[in-house]
């Protein structure tokens, strides 16, 4: 067991996979000598050399497009987008090519690559550095979207993503990068892409969230349980797409009440998809409307206002209590 933060845990996963499999290479802007602007790839350049930890030219489409070629030719590229806000420049390569090679060649050519990117607000950053647009990627068939929430699951899920046969967008909640440490086991834990995790069992209400929203959600649950007796089940989605509808449905069938917490803008996001899934599978079990606690449908404001726009423990607590009391 080692105590580490999420940056160290992601670094550990990269190190473990690069050590295990020489097809795994990392590439991106400033990831080599500098170790990445968040230091996620710190030390890997020295350990594995510039052929396997590649400082690329500053071109997001170029990074993903060449990663596609490398993946087709048998490597396992792990590409870094420096911030998710810059990643839209590679969207054409992701949707038009990475996501499609398997289908359009009926499995003859596949694209096993990972695109890592820090996402989300809460670190008082410049504009374009705080967005939470996982839905943009989750809407592309053939792409998997994974969002860890803790050092342990970041390490386990990144290993799973690197070994996965498909393109995986791996979105790292940057405000959780160094926010806390936890024990990460020596031996890797099995995390399966496409599976949500029931973090806390409960009978009265289900809360579903992911990524950076796990921490304010945990705080909200704690606050509620300090003053009233309510049994809350907490689900960490972990994989946005393909979504684990069964875990969601099983929980809501049991509790009959659900709140979804999403950092991203309100409309057309994973929260909407979760509610649609509940509607499809367990509508008749509901005892209250499913509530969403989300960002707003505005451009992410500059950091002077970001705390007011992002869901916080207080908003989450009120939504949970309103739903319990409905």
């Amino acid at each position: 067991m080692r105590r580490m933060n999420m940056v160290q845990a992601i670094n550990l996963a990269l190190d473990e996979e690069m050590g295990r499999d020489d097809r795994v290479i990392a590439l991106g802007q400033d990831i080599g000598v500098n170790g990445g602007v968040f230091r996620v790839t710190d030390g890997l350049h020295t350990k594995y050399g510039e052929d396997r930890v590649i400082d690329t030219p500053l071109a997001e489409s170029g990074i993903l497009g060449t990663s596609i070629g490398m993946a087709i030719a048998g490597l396992r590229p792990v590409a870094e987008m420096q911030f998710s806000g810059f990643s839209y420049l590679m969207l054409g390569q992701l949707e038009g090519h990475a996501a499609r090679f398997r289908g359009r060649t009926h499995g003859k050519f596949t694209v096993p690559l990972v695109v890592r990117m820090p996402y989300g607000g809460g670190v008082r950053a410049l504009e374009h550095h705080s967005e939470s647009h996982e839905a943009t990627y989750a809407h592309i068939p053939g792409v998997k979207v994974v969002i860890p929430s803790t050092p342990s699951n970041a390490r386990g899920l990144l290993i799973a993503a690197i070994r996965d046969p498909d393109p995986v967008v791996f979105m790292e909640p940057k405000c959780s990068y160094r926010a806390f440490r936890e024990e990460v086991p020596e031996k890797e834990q099995g995390f399966e892409i496409g599976k949500a995790q029931v973090v806390k069992g409960g009978d009265d209400l289900t809360v579903i969230t992911w990524g950076a929203m796990m921490r304010p959600t945990l705080r909200a649950i704690e606050e509620i349980q300090q003053h009233r007796k309510v049994s809350i089940e907490l689900i960490d989605l972990l994989t946005i797409s393909p979504m684990d509808g069964d875990t969601i449905a099983a929980s809501v069938a049991k509790t009959g009440r659900c709140v979804v917490v999403q950092e991203a803008p309100k409309s057309f996001g994973p929260a909407s998809e979760i509610i649609a899934t509940i509607n499809d599978k367990v509508l008749m079990h509901l005892e209250a409307p499913v509530r969403r606690v989300t960002g707003y449908d505005t451009t992410m404001p500059y950091f002077g206002r970001e705390n007011d726009f992002m869901p916080n423990a207080d908003r989450i607590r009120r939504a949970i209590e309103d739903t319990v009391d409905f």
């Binding site: 396997r52 497009g65 060449t66 596609i68 030719a73 490597l75 054409g92 060649t105």
Partner: peptide
């Protein structure tokens, strides 16, 4: 041989990635 690329110019990056993989391997 990759299938045709309908999206204009996108394949040039795939080609460079493949070529670099050949070199690295």
């Amino acid at each position: 041989m990759l299938p045709i690329s309908v999206i204009i110019g996108a394949q040039t990056l795939h080609a460079v990635g493949i070529a670099h993989a050949m070199k690295l391997r």
